[in-house]
Structures are given as C-alpha cells and as structure tokens.
Amino acid sequence: MADIKLTNLNKSYGAVQILKDINLDIKSGEFMVFVGPSGCGKSTLLRSISGLDSVTSGTLEIDHAVVNEVPPSKRGIAMVFQSYALYPHMSVFENIGFALENQGLSRAEIKKKVEAVGEMLQLTSYLTRLPKALSGGQRQRVAIGRAIVRGAKVFLFDEPLSNLDAALRVQMRMEIAKLKRDLPNTTMIYVTHDQVEAMTMADRIVVLKAGVVQQVGTPMELYERPNSVFVAGFIGSPKMNFIAGTPAKGLKAKTIGVRPEHFEFSTAKTDIAGTVDYTEILGSDSFLYVTTPSGMLTVRQPGRTEIKTGQKLNLKPIAQHVHRFGDDDMRLAN
C-alpha cells in the first residue's frame, strides 16, 4: 500500500525550471499515466519520484513519509526503463536477482524468489540466458520481473514500450494491463508520449506541458471534458479540430473544438463549408481533409466513404459534442 503525494514540487536545472508547482495525489494501487509532448517534464517528474533526480523545492511523500532526501534504493520503488537497462553481462537469473543480492538475501531465498517470478512471467526456460539472446518482448518481461521480485510498493515505467514494434507494443500493453490486475495493491506510474497508451491503460492520466500539470482525470474525463485547448488537442486521434472566428463567435467562445467524428453534413450552406482536399480510406474508417475558411478540418466517416476529392461539403458540428474555449484557451462552462 503506497499513496504518493506531491506538494508544490519544483525542479530546476540552473535557471531553467523543469517542473513548476506540481501538486498530485496518487492513490495506492492506482495506475497513473503521465503524458505530454517531449520536453514537458514527465520523465523528470518520474525520476524525481524515483529519487534519481533530486527536487529543488516542495515535498514528495511515499506512504505518508517525506522521501525528498531518501536515496532511490530506500524508497520502495522499482523502475522499468525505456531501454530496459538489463545488465548485458548477467543472465536473466542474475538480472532479476541483483536487487535481492544487494539486500543481502541468502542464495536459497534469491533462487526461490527469482524462480517464482520467472514462472509468473513465463521466463522459466530463459533464466540462464543472457539478455542479448532474448526477444524484445522477453526483455521487457525480464525488466518487469526485476521490478516484481523486489516486492516494490511502487512501479515506475519510463516509456517502456517505445522501443517495440507496433504489433509487440499492443501485446505488451495487454501484459502490463494483466500485471496491474495481478498486483492490485501496487501503485504504478507510467510515462508515455503516446496518448493511445495513456487512454488504454490508465486509471487516471496526468497531462503535462512545459512542467505544469494541465489536467488530471480518467481517460474518459479527459476525452469528453478537456479543460484546455492543449489537452483537447493532445488527447484523441486524429486531433480535435479547432475553429476560430464566426462559428466560434456564434457560440460565445474564442475557439470551439470539434472531434473529427462529431461532424454532420448539411445540405444547406453552413458557416463551416469547404472543399474536400484529400481522402484517406482505412477500411474501418475514412478521413476527409476539408479546406474551409477556418483552416483544414479533419472529418471521420465510419466505413468507406463515397465522398470524392474536390467535392464541396457543408459541415455542422453536433451540438452536444462542441467544446468551447475562452480567450485564455481554457474551457468555458456550458
């Protein structure tokens, strides 16, 4: 059981402030995803929690104890690195057992624990191999095994899937989801720049931009009620369309946001009209790229579309799915 509480956390390198006043409550057993564009500070935040980076000010509590000055090995955390950081000269067994060895456990205990973890992750027949003789997915499992074996209260994942190819990434996503089910009391924090991973795996998501928390919420909250233009644009693929000018003014907003799937076609002329510039037909969906006075808009159509390039369209947002943003790019109350 480990709650994590960050209070007014700041982190600077010299004059550059990487994290600004982060306040965050992560509940025990929660799967929290930090997401944001590269350079937003999400990895630094994770590293601050791990203790690999120190914080400049503010407090960091794990399990109600302030751990600002506690070295990583004493924080009860485990970390899965982007590169997995498997020790290339050690066998899978030694890799998993290294932390136990450092804790001073006996050989027999180490053997018992490592073998148990090996079984859990289907690595039993690979224990004597070196990492270079493993596939990408197996390496990932060894990295996870290293975290599990220590019985850490908190797992930290630093973009663990970004080195895998697309098919494997889907498979490993499911394995991590299963891991979360198997270890319900372990708090997991997962950093990614891929909003699909965030949406599919998270209990809650933290969206960061330039070291500032933009929004914290469940995936559906973020999708349905993004509280800023930034979050709205970051979550969802293809990106939400932002329309300024007349159509927005009509709704008393500076900008309105409409997701590609939330357009209707109208036979009558609407204030969002344009020409189809280009179409992409993916089979399950089709995307239309429509040039309008408000800029290029993306429209999603289920299945195959009959609409051809060059065709003129009158677009109309579905009213209850329109997001309104004010002058400060923040969401306006409905």
Binding site: S50, G51, L52, P71, P72, S73, I77, A78, M79, F81, Q82, S83, Y84, A85, Y87, F98, A99, N102, Q103, R146, R150
Partner: peptide, 17 residues
C-alpha cells in the same frame, strides 16, 4: 548507458558495487 547505472542504483547497489 545511463539507464544501466541508474537501474543498479535503484536495485540498491552502492557505487563500489
């Protein structure tokens, strides 16, 4: 790789180890 060193730190190894 930096990850290796940090991973070992998290695993509780001191610098000598």
């Amino acid at each position: 790789p930096k990850d290796l060193i940090e991973s070992a730190q998290i695993d509780g190894a001191n610098d000598f180890k």
